[in-house]
Computed example of a mutant assay.
Amino acid sequence: MFLHRFTRIAVMTGVLGALSACGGGIGSSNLFSRTGVPTDEQLASKERADAQRAALARANGEDKRRSTIWDLFTNTSDPNTTVEVNKYLWQASLEVLNFLPIESVDPFTGVIVTGYGTPPGGGRAYRATIYVQDPALDARSLRVALQSRGGAVPAETAKAIEDAILTRARQLRIRDSKL
């Protein structure tokens, strides 16, 4: 009786194992057509999904592959990593927008957030968020977002502020190089 029961359990376990290894169960994706070869549509869809997953992983800083389950529980990021910002762009941003009250400043990430303020000789109140994202002194390193109490600000106004900050940053650099 015991041997018969043990044999039945072993056979059922083997059958279940073989069926689960085949896949094709409920919820599995059918990547292959009836011939066993993926169609062009299915391949394109899978490649698109893989590319989206890879881009999301890169955006979240999960570029490298995990090797074991225990790697999920370790913090592999370097706590001493800092973002470098250009000191001239940083100082020029504070000088050009000195009429705006500072709400928060984070030199480690390069973000300056201001409150509403009126420029000298102007009647409209603005607020700004400045992002210095690179140690290079060029236009790609600077992002300025402006907002007024009435809503959006014309792109020309934001561009003029960026140009003023870049001009002042270049002046500061030239002044330092003469010392």
Score class of each variant (00 low, 15 high):
residue 1 M to H: 11
residue 3 L to W: 02
residue 3 L to P: 00
residue 3 L to T: 13
residue 5 R to A: 15
residue 6 F to M: 13
residue 10 A to F: 04
residue 14 G to F: 02
residue 14 G to M: 04
residue 15 V to W: 01
residue 15 V to I: 15
residue 17 G to E: 00
residue 18 A to W: 06
residue 19 L to D: 08
residue 20 S to H: 08
residue 20 S to R: 12
residue 20 S to Y: 12
residue 21 A to Y: 06
residue 24 G to W: 04
residue 27 G to Y: 10
residue 29 S to R: 07
residue 30 N to F: 09
residue 32 F to M: 11
residue 34 R to G: 15
residue 34 R to V: 15
residue 38 P to N: 01
residue 40 D to H: 09
residue 42 Q to V: 06
residue 42 Q to H: 07
residue 43 L to P: 04
residue 44 A to Q: 09
residue 44 A to D: 11
residue 47 E to L: 12
residue 47 E to F: 07
residue 50 D to A: 13
residue 52 Q to F: 00
residue 52 Q to V: 11
residue 54 A to E: 13
residue 54 A to S: 13
residue 56 L to N: 15
residue 56 L to T: 11
residue 61 G to V: 03
residue 62 E to W: 14
residue 63 D to C: 11
residue 64 K to C: 07
residue 64 K to E: 10
residue 65 R to V: 11
residue 65 R to S: 12
residue 66 R to W: 04
residue 67 S to I: 10
residue 68 T to R: 07
residue 71 D to S: 08
residue 73 F to C: 06
residue 73 F to I: 09
residue 77 S to I: 08
residue 78 D to P: 00
residue 82 T to R: 15
residue 86 N to H: 05
residue 87 K to V: 09
residue 89 L to E: 02
residue 90 W to V: 05
residue 90 W to I: 07
residue 90 W to L: 09
residue 91 Q to L: 09
residue 91 Q to C: 05
residue 92 A to Y: 00
residue 93 S to I: 00
residue 95 E to D: 14
residue 95 E to G: 10
residue 96 V to P: 03
residue 97 L to F: 02
residue 99 F to S: 14
residue 100 L to M: 06
residue 100 L to V: 02
residue 103 E to D: 10
residue 106 D to L: 05
residue 107 P to R: 05
residue 107 P to G: 12
residue 110 G to V: 01
residue 110 G to P: 02
residue 111 V to E: 13
residue 112 I to Q: 04
residue 113 V to E: 15
residue 116 Y to E: 10
residue 119 P to K: 05
residue 121 G to I: 11
residue 124 R to A: 14
residue 125 A to E: 12
residue 126 Y to G: 00
residue 127 R to E: 14
residue 130 I to D: 04
residue 134 D to N: 13
residue 135 P to L: 04
residue 135 P to Q: 06
residue 138 D to Y: 05
residue 138 D to L: 05
residue 141 S to Y: 03
residue 143 R to T: 14
residue 143 R to L: 12
residue 145 A to H: 06
residue 149 R to F: 00
residue 151 G to E: 01
residue 152 A to T: 10
residue 154 P to Q: 09
residue 156 E to V: 09
residue 158 A to Q: 14
residue 159 K to V: 02
residue 159 K to N: 12
residue 160 A to W: 00
residue 161 I to Q: 09
residue 161 I to A: 14
residue 167 T to G: 04
residue 168 R to F: 01
residue 169 A to T: 01
residue 172 L to W: 02
residue 172 L to A: 11
residue 172 L to Q: 07
residue 173 R to W: 03
residue 173 R to P: 00
residue 174 I to A: 10
residue 177 S to R: 14
residue 178 K to A: 12
residue 178 K to R: 15
